[in-house]
Amino acid sequence: MAPTFSTPIKLMSFSILFFLIINIVNAQQSNLVYYLQDIGKGNNPTVATVIGINGRVWSYNTFGTIFVVDDPVLLEPSPLSTQVGKAQGVITVTSIDGANVNIVLSLVFNDVQYGRSTLQIQGSSHQRDNLRELSVIGGTGRFRFARGYVVFETVSYDPTNNHSVIKLAITLSIP
Rank of each mutant, 00 (worst) to 15 (best):
V73S: 02
G141A: 11
N43R: 07
D71K: 12
T62F: 00
F145N: 08
L11Y: 10
T46D: 03
V101T: 07
I16S: 03
Y34H: 15
L32A: 09
F143R: 03
N161I: 04
F143S: 12
T118P: 09
L80W: 01
E76P: 05
G148T: 10
I24N: 09
E76R: 10
E153I: 05
N43L: 15
G141I: 14
V25W: 09
T140Y: 10
T7H: 10
P175N: 03
S173A: 11
T65K: 09
K86I: 01
I166K: 07
G89S: 07
S106C: 03
F18P: 09
S173T: 01
G123E: 04
L74G: 06
T62K: 00
Q88T: 12
S78I: 01
V165R: 05
R144S: 12
A99E: 14
Q127N: 05
M1P: 04
G98R: 08
P8K: 08
I16E: 14
P45A: 03
Q29F: 02
G148W: 11
N162E: 11
T140A: 09
N100I: 01
S164N: 12
V151M: 02
S124R: 10
V90C: 05
Y157K: 12
N161D: 13
S13R: 05
G141K: 06
A169N: 13
T7N: 04
L134D: 05
E76I: 00
S156H: 00
L17A: 15
R56E: 10
S124F: 04
E133M: 09
Y114L: 09
T92G: 14
G141R: 10
T4Q: 06
I96T: 09
Q28P: 00
L119Q: 06
L168G: 08
T92M: 15
V108I: 05
N110F: 13
T82Q: 14
S15G: 00
S6G: 00
V33W: 13
L36Y: 02
A87H: 04
Q127V: 07
F67L: 07
N54R: 07
V101S: 15
S30P: 05
T7A: 07
G123W: 00
D71S: 01
S173E: 08
S164R: 03
Q122E: 14
S78M: 06
